[in-house]
Design a protein around this nucleic acid. Structure first.
Lengths: 150, 150
DNA sequence: TGAATAAAAGACCCTTATATCCTTTATTCA
DNA sequence: TGAATAAAGGATATAAGGGTCTTTTATTCA
């Protein structure tokens, strides 16, 4: 009974990598030692070239900072550290994730709900509101205390 | 500042179509008038051939019933009507969705959590337990009462 | 029986996500 | 200044998801 399953996910792989990378930078970069793409790729076990692409995207959107050349690499400005998780998700996966209907219907709302609207909406909104208040720095702190793996 | 976003989603399109189709069948098929793929495709605005393939997958897994030939089509047995939503999701998208880590880490659990584990897990499990108790028939009833759009 | 109907099945194509590679630009420091 | 380093950028490859088309099989009914 072979069934071809479409392996779905909440966050794209790019977004997952982006979040882990940014938290890694927050937890490991210091003014005297910036974090390089190579170091991150090794430590987080993310394909290096793919990670570089993602980091580029984040810097272009000013969610992480970088400098080129020897001793160059990535770091977070004070402002970068206060970035909330939802911002990263939005940059990587677009604004749709926390707004779109579970069943993909264009007109789904509390007034014209799809059959799963009320089952799904609190799940979605609950997560969204948490991520909207949670900063990179806060996650990095938890990592530093060793309570969590990256 | 062009950012190539990877449009993520909770349920795959195949799964969204599958759920809508099954609820449609439950709400519209009668012993004297089975629902055809064409009718469903038209009514739900789903590409017909794609829908057919999905329906095939569901019948192969005995979540919907069908007969060929003139006046043939799809219908739900009594047992089919009591199928819970999580079963459909599992057939279409695999068993991973409600178990996998938000950040895609293989070893994520309450003991070795990823940075977002506790933020995500209760919502994920909450939705899962709802879908595990919710049947096709129950959704079809809501549709019949006109409270919901398909 | 045979023509018409509708699902089952399989081959195929297009788009997007994921991943890799190569070249260019900026920076450091000997 | 120039060699080395590391990010930025662009072009390309691979895989999976989404979608289409054609043929086969089962069923009905005239």
């Amino acid at each position: 009974m072979s069934t071809t399953q479409s392996e779905s996910h909440v966050l794209s792989k790019s977004c997952q990598y982006a979040l882990r990378a940014v938290v890694y930078i927050a937890a490991n970069a210091t003014p005297s030692h910036l974090t390089g793409a190579q170091e991150m790729a090794d430590s987080l076990e993310i394909p290096k070239h793919f990670l570089s692409k993602i980091l580029q995207q984040l810097t272009r959107n000013q969610l992480v900072s970088s400098t080129k050349g020897p001793n160059g690499g990535f770091y977070l400005s004070e402002e970068n550290e206060r970035t909330t998780i939802d911002r990263i998700v939005e940059i990587m996966d677009g604004p749709g994730l926390f707004k779109a209907c579970v069943l993909g219907m264009p007109e789904c709302s509390a007034v014209h709900p799809c059959p799963l609207h009320f089952q799904a909406v609190d799940y979605r909104d609950g997560l969204y509101h948490k991520l909207k208040r949670l900063t990179i720095q806060e996650l990095a702190d938890v990592v530093h205390k060793g309570h969590v793996q990256l």
